[in-house]
Write a protein that binds this DNA or RNA. Structure first.
Length: 490
RNA sequence: CGGGGUGUGGCGCAGUCUGGUUAGCGCGCAGCGUUCGGGACGCAGAGGCCGUGAGUUCGAAUCUCACCAUCCCGACCA
């Protein structure tokens, strides 16, 4: 029984909170809806960032940085974009405080800004107002830029990592000469996200297009990857938007084409956020704590010494340094936990909580026999190995764990994805089985809305790999060419 | 923004209904000793203007009012 972690069965959402807090990933701050990301949590985020950044650069993108503040007038140029974000914007109205006679600090009303500044909820507007200056000719295109930044969306209800008022993310903003090229970029980046989710986070995802009503504010098309969490709910893990010429028109960004014609620029934008941390937790962890895929674990191997006196400890230390030299050579990260203030059992529990993939325990008994105990976090299995060659065992095991937790997540998803042909069936699955439902839909926002109202399930996306098949909408009976993905979502 | 809950040592809570000497408990913390192959044990410690303000009362953690903070559920959203 783990100390202080609510079981998934008992209360899934409390379980999630417990893991985030007890594994030392993050905590609530003094600011409503904003969290402190703690060193261990941030280390995982840094690993995610490093890999994503590498993938962005491999696909030809460069990093840049745009301002946190957006003048209100920029923000309001693209109508549907404003509609989408207006209700959740933090606004800066003053630039100075003053001290009153009784010592209170108050806003200085004389320091009112001429034009209010919006704290960016996303950066399309500030970036497109900048691109206007950069783009004149087809020779200036494409522009392939990413930025790592924080954004603020004033959410009604927040949850650590899954939805916070301020969050960290990356946002790519690209400009192209043709529609085809922008569409290809949009799709390419979705593929990058999917690859990252599956190969690094060990989290299978379903790629598809959003319906019109779920589209990003200002986009012509929004693509998403959707992952299934252990409670059967969907989590949107990344989005990539084809923006058409909407922002180019709003910000008057034109270029002269090869044919000497003046044309508006085509755009894409795409992003993933610290929400991925929440996805990572909910995809793999168990009632004992976090389970991390080795590729994102800050520490691959923890080594716990078991000893009765200094003499034994010194023997162990010597042996361990031989092992760690070999781990270093293989680029496997490790921690030798020789704290004298905690006993081994305490450390075992602690690293299980933190999801360290592999644990080694070594005591006098092992020194005498030339052995070492290895425990893997994903299955909690323990086994005795010869110290000789342990680094190779670990190297292979890390790879195996990475694959195994992916397989486990995939099997779980497959076991919890259903087909429904009637609305009765559909409602039964959504209410009683928890999971994804593939069903026919007539393509209208009205039907989508009705289903959401009645069941709380939404269309997560229209999967790319959903095969063409003749069907009838389960509500209206109108013809439908393929099934779409329904689920309750985070 | 609607509904509900909670504010008491660092953390988690009891005490509040039925006001009364010194506000308890568990964990944690600091000390000594014994321990150390799955969250150790003993001994003896430190640490509280009971969320804020006003009121009722001889007397308030406890009753009243207001405010603030925070969490959960809904609507909205990555």
């Amino acid at each position: 029984m783990s100390k202080g972690i609510t079981s998934r069965e008992e209360n899934y959402s409390q379980w999630y909170n417990d893991i985030v807090i007890k594994a030392d990933l993050a905590e609530n701050s003094g600011v409503r809806g904003s969290m402190v990301i703690k060193p261990y949590g941030f280390a995982i985020w840094e690993k995610m960032q490093a890999q994503l950044d590498k993938m962005f650069k491999e696909t030809g993108h460069e990093n840049a940085y745009f301002p946190l503040f957006i003048p209100k007038s920029y923000f309001t140029k693209e109508a549907s974009h404003v509609d989408g974000f207006a209700k959740e914007c933090a606004v800066v109205t003053h630039y100075r405080l003053k001290t009153t006679e009784n010592g209170d600090i108050v806003v200085d009303e004389n320091a009112k800004l001429e034009e209010e500044l919006i704290v960016r909820p996303t950066s399309e507007t500030i970036i497109w107002s900048t691109y206007k200056k950069w783009i004149h000719s087809y020779r200036d295109l494409p522009i392939l830029i990413n930025q790592w930044a924080n954004v603020v969306r004033w959410e009604m209800r927040t949850r650590l990592f899954l939805r916070t008022s301020e969050f960290l993310w990356q946002e790519g903003h690209t400009a192209h000469a043709t529609s085809e090229e922008a569409i290809a970029e949009t799709r390419q980046m979705l593929d990058v996200y999917a690859e990252f989710a599956e190969k690094w986070m060990a989290m299978p995802v379903i790629k598809g297009s959003k319906t019109e009503s779920e589209r990003f504010a200002g986009a012509l098309d929004t693509l998403s990857i959707e992952a299934m969490m252990q409670d059967g709910k969907a989590l949107q893990a990344g989005t990539s938007h084809f923006l058409g010429q909407n922002f180019a028109k709003a910000f008057d960004v034109k270029f002269t084409s090869k044919e000497s014609k003046e044309e508006f620029v085509w755009a894409s934008s795409w992003g993933v956020s610290t929400r991925l941390m929440g996805a990572l937790v909910m995809a793999h962890s168990d009632d004992k704590g976090l389970v991390l895929p080795p590729k994102l674990a800050p520490i691959h191997v923890v080594i716990v010494p078991i000893y009765k006196n200094d003499e034994q400890l010194n023997l162990i230390k010597n042996k361990v340094s031989e092992i760690t030299d070999k781990l270093k050579a293989k680029n496997i990260s490790f921690k030798f936990d020789d704290r004298t203030t905690y006993r081994p059992g305490h450390k075992f529990a602690e690293y299980e909580l933190k999801g360290v993939p592999v644990r080694l325990a070594i005591g006098q008994r092992d020194i005498d026999n030339g052995t070492i105990e290895l425990a893997r976090r994903d299955t909690l299995e323990k086994k005795i190995y010869d110290i000789d060659g342990i680094e190779t065992v670990i190297e292979n095991l890390l790879r195996e764990i990475q694959d195994k937790i992916y397989d486990k997540a995939l099997k779980f998803r497959e076991a919890n994805i259903y087909k429904a042909d009637t609305y009765e069936e559909f409602k039964d699955i959504i209410e009683n089985k928890n999971g994804f439902v593939m069903a026919h839909w007539d393509g209208t926002p009205e039907t989508e809305e009705k289903i959401q109202q009645e069941t709380k399930a939404t269309i997560r996306n229209i999967p790319f790999d959903s095969p063409e098949e003749e069907g009838k909408c389960m509500i209206s009976g109108k013809p439908s060419k393929r099934r779409v993905l329904f689920a309750k979502a985070y």
